[in-house]
Design a protein around this nucleic acid. Sequence first.
DNA 1: TGGGGTTGATTAAGCGGTTCATCAAAGGAA
DNA 2: TTCCTTTGATGAACCGCTTAATCAACCCCA
Lengths: 357, 357
Amino acid sequence: MPVTLRDVAKVAGASVAAVSSTLNGSRSQTIRVSADTRERIIRAALDLGYTANPIAKSLATGRTGVLGLMLPYADAFVDQNPFSMTLMKGVMEEAIRRHANVMLYTASDDVSDVRAAAMVDRHVDGLILVMPVEGSPIVHKLDHRGIPYVSILRKPLPGTWTVNSDDYRGGRLATRHLIELGHRRLMHFAGDPEVVTSKGRRQGFLDEAVEAGSNIEDAEVVPSGFDYFRGYESARQALQDRKKPWPTGIFAANDLCAQGVMVFLREMGLRLPQDVAIVGYDDTAQAETTHPTLTSVHMGIEEIGRTAVDLLLARIEGLPVSDVQPVLPVRLTVRESSGTMRANSQGGNGRPRRSKR
Amino acid sequence: MPVTLRDVAKVAGASVAAVSSTLNGSRSQTIRVSADTRERIIRAALDLGYTANPIAKSLATGRTGVLGLMLPYADAFVDQNPFSMTLMKGVMEEAIRRHANVMLYTASDDVSDVRAAAMVDRHVDGLILVMPVEGSPIVHKLDHRGIPYVSILRKPLPGTWTVNSDDYRGGRLATRHLIELGHRRLMHFAGDPEVVTSKGRRQGFLDEAVEAGSNIEDAEVVPSGFDYFRGYESARQALQDRKKPWPTGIFAANDLCAQGVMVFLREMGLRLPQDVAIVGYDDTAQAETTHPTLTSVHMGIEEIGRTAVDLLLARIEGLPVSDVQPVLPVRLTVRESSGTMRANSQGGNGRPRRSKR
DNA sequence: TGGGGTTGATTAAGCGGTTCATCAAAGGAA
DNA sequence: TTCCTTTGATGAACCGCTTAATCAACCCCA
C-alpha cells in the first residue's frame, strides 16, 4: 500500500538508483543524475506522496538515526525533581536540530540493565547515560558491542566521554555570595557524599571559606539527601539542639533540599532572609515558587543535554575515542532568599515575580 | 562483525528458516523443527552470542515494536509541571512490561507538526498523543497513513480512542469535601476555560454546589491559568478589593495554581487552613512540600499512561476501531490545607510528613 | 582515428531477518 | 500394496533501501 522507491522509479521512468540518489542525497559519486531526470523524479515523488521507509534505510546503511537516552529509574526519574525533564528538553531540542530521534530507556536494576542492553542493541546509534558508569554491566556490553555512549554528571573515567557541570565553581559562587553579603557563620547541606556532583560543590564551599580566612567564624558541612524530606530532617538534626551559635548563611546541595531546610527554619521562627540567608542549587522552576523565592546556582541542564547530543553524534561520526570531558559553566541566580542582612524591610515580601531570563 | 542468523545456521548445521523459527517463535506452521535440531540451534546461538537485529526484523515484519509518545513542547513539556514526567513514567512502565520501546517526539508548532509526522512515519507502530487532536495536521496524516494512535486528556471525538480522567467527579469530590467541612462560601479557580479538563472540574464544582442547596451561600467561578504566577494574579484580582465577603473554601484547577493562590492568601494575613481551606488538583509531589501541605485530587497520571499503552497495543493488534473512551477514577488526598475550620490548634503546623501512598 | 576521461544511467548484490512453497521420508489407514 | 497425512526441513523470494560494479555515449586531445 505505501509508496516505495520502485513505484517512484516506475512513474518517473528512471532507475531505483537514480531515485535513491536524488531523493536522499547519497555519498556515492558513481550515480549521476541529469537535471532533467532529477526533475521528473522529484515530481513523481511529490505526486505519489513518497516518504522513505526509515527502517529499510537503517538496514541498508547500518545507521538508525536514533539516540538512546537512558535514565535511572529509581534516582532521577521521579516526579519531585524536574532534572530529568529539563535534561530531556535539551536533548530533544538538539536531537531535532540534528535530525535525530530519541528513544527512551530506563534502567531500574541490574537484571533489567541486561535486558535494556539487549533492547538497545542495534536499535540506536548511540546512548546518553544518566547513571553510574563504573562497573555497570550495560557499559561493558556497550563497549563490547562497540556502541558509542556519552555519560552525564558522572565521574570522568579514562576512555569515556562525560559531560559535567562545574560543581566546584558552583560551590564557590554560592559561598562567595553569602560571604559578600556579610555572613560569617556558614553551613553547607551537602547532599549525598557518595554522589560525584556533591563532592565538587562541597569542595568549592570549603575552599572559598578557607580563602576568606579570618572573616569566617564557622563553616560546617553536614550530609543531607537530595529531597525535601531529608533536607528538612538534616536541618532538624543539625540545628535543633545546637550548642554553638546558628549559621546565618546556608548553602544547600540542591533546591529541593533547600526547601526542606527553609521550612524548618521558618518553623523555628526565623525570618528569611533577614535572619538566615539561603542559597540552593539547580535553579529549578520551583525556586521561583518558594516563599521567599530561592537564590540558586544555575547549571544549564538543557545545555548539558545539548552538549551530550553533540558529543554523541561526533562519536558516532567516528571521532577518535580519546577522553572528552567538557565541564559546563554555572552562574548564580539571585532571588529573595539571600537578600542582604541589613535590608530588613525590603526583599523577602514573598510577592511572586516572573524571572527575567 | 556481528553474528547473523546465517552464522548460527552454519554452525548448527541447520537452515536459516529453522533457526529463525526456533529462536524467535514464528507463527508459521510449515516450519517444523525436531527437538534435536532445536537444541543444536540454541547451543550454537548461545556459543556465538547471537542477538537478532531488530531493524531487519522490523523490515521483514512491518512492525517495529516502538511506540511514539508525542508531547506538546510548549504546553506540558515544561519544567514547572511534573505532569509529563509522571505520564512518561507510566508509559515506560507498561511499555517495558509489554516488551515495547518508546520513542519521544515533541510537537512545537504546525510546521514541525508536519515534520514530526514525517519522522514518525513507519518508525513507530503507533502513537500516544498529548496534544489537541481537533484539526491537527498530524492527526490527518496519521489517519491517512493508517497509523494507530491514542490521545490523552482530550475531548473524545468520534472514531478516536481517548484516555481521560474523571474530571467531573474530581470537581465534585473536592467541592463536597469543602462543603462537608462546613464551608458555605466557595470559590473555584477554574484554569483555562478552553481546556477540556477544566470544563469537567468546573461543572463538578457547580453541580455539587447546587445540590448542597441552601447550605451554600456563594459559589463563584473565576478563570485562572494553570501556573503559579497566574494563580497568584487571579487570586489578587478576584479578592483584593472584594466587596462581598471572602470565600472560606477554595478549589483550584491544579496544584500549581493553588500554590499561587495560597501565597496571596498568606500575604493577606489569612491563616491556612483556619481561615481559608484550599483544595488543589493533580496531587503532584509538590503538594507535599507546600506550607501547609496541600489537599489535592489525585488522578493517577501513571495509570493514564499505562492505560494508553494498553489501548494503543490493542489497536495495533487490530482491534476494531469503534470508539473507546475510558474515564479513569479519581480520589481525594487530604492534607493540611483543608483541616477542619474548628480544629484551629491541630493541623497546619507545616511539619512535613511522608505520604503514605 | 584511437584511446582516455567524463557524464548519465542501470543492474544487481547486499543488509538480516520472515515465511511461503516445496519436498522427502515416515507413519497410518484401507 | 497403495494412497494420504503428518513430520521435519530447506531454498528462495521478499521487505525497501543503498551502493559498488558496470556500461554506453560523448567529448577532447594527441
